[in-house]
Amino acid sequence: MDTDPKDSKETKQLTTGEEDRKSLVTRVKEGTSALKDRAVDEAKEYKDPQETQLWKSIFRVSHDRSDPRNRSLAILSNVFLHLHPAKINRDAVRYPFTWGMGGITFYLFIVLTFTGVLLMFYYHPTKADAFRDILYLEHDVPFGKLLRNMHRWAAHLMVITTWLHMFRVVLTGSYKRPREFNWCVGVVLLVLTLLLSFTGYLLPDDQLGFWAVTVGTNMARATPMLGSEGPFGPQLGLTAYNDVRFGLLGGSIVDSNALLRSYIWHCIGIPLVASIFMAVHFWRIRKDGGISGPAPIVLESEMKAVKKK
């Protein structure tokens, strides 16, 4: 703003050309050097990107100052980090207490979403294309093999980390009051993780997936009262063409409909449901008072009597 009057003055000089009789070349030179000085001055301000309007519009607070207010705001004013409380129990960051398995599980979910979306670009859930797409992915797509490997191994790892997370929660008794409900949400998430893995198994449309899913869905045939071969199924009029297995596969055999259903459950249905449960799971951690410990030990003699209503 402060340079504007000067600019207009220069323009005036150029047009009138009477007060100053310097040559055009000198005047251009002077003008250029003034512009250069201004540019250098302004560039100096950009040396600290955190002071720019652009930066400040994105990040409301500085992340490298160590005063308590700033450190709290760094967490509270960030949509991704605000999942955390501003402060936690000083012993809770010790790795041996939590093992970090819940967080790693969530990170693996993100990795799987990312690699999964990339895989979707190369995959058609049809009997004619599915297997060829995998071959194409493995041999022609740049880094396609790495992508598929990563998706598969991350999935296996996620099953393991979910179990280990659960194991830690058991060992520290973290499922106890007031976290009972969140434990239940966690059990649902474990089941959803297994189902995600299972629905993905069929998608390459190879012998491995085909027979694994055949074995798996054959069990559905035996569901009591819902399957054609389960207890009380035939009595209720169920056949291979209207029972729960038919509903899962979209047919009486594992074929193109099963592939499509598996694909949609794997890519849209279950991730959507799992995301909702995850949101509840994380929200409840905060609402139930953060992570459970390491809490001070309670002695047997301090056990409070149960309140009788």
Partner: peptide, 10 residues
């Protein structure tokens, strides 16, 4: 008794 999440946990 408590420490800041930024940066000790993050």
């Amino acid at each position: 008794r408590e420490i800041h999440v930024w940066p000790y946990l993050v």
